[in-house]
Amino acid sequence: MRKYQYTFLLILTSIFLTKCSEEYPIDEDGLLITTRTSAYVGSFEILGSDFQTVRTKVAVVDTVAQTIDVEVHFGTDLSRLYPQFSLVTDAKLEPKITGFVDFSNLASPLQWTVISGNRKIRKTYTVNLTVQQPTP
């Protein structure tokens, strides 16, 4: 009889443990989908082909206008730049940055979308890149 009591207790404990583990959903990238609704860029960096910064000063991130204004050094090779976005917690970027990006068409600024942790809020940022010019 005592043997059955132990078995019963074990089954109950197993049920309790499995019922208490809450399943968090993950998105198509295998990232956790959370409850956070924020979607913004905290800061922005841009590196040259030598993986050194090419900014002349800190990039200006406007979270209301959803723009990033950055000036790069004169002579920067615009066809091989590596942008780096610092995002709010749990957010992700689209499209993904997997290598150097071609910024050489300055007339057509590139855009990235920040997606919130709950994957429901999407905010598109425009990166306005300018090149440092000699003082006349």
């Binding site: 002349t56 050094h73 004169f74 002579g75 440092q132 010019q133 000699p134 003082t135």
Partner: peptide, 10 residues
Amino acid sequence: TIPGITFGHA
């Protein structure tokens, strides 16, 4: 050395 830009050694 050019005013307004960083040129330096090239």
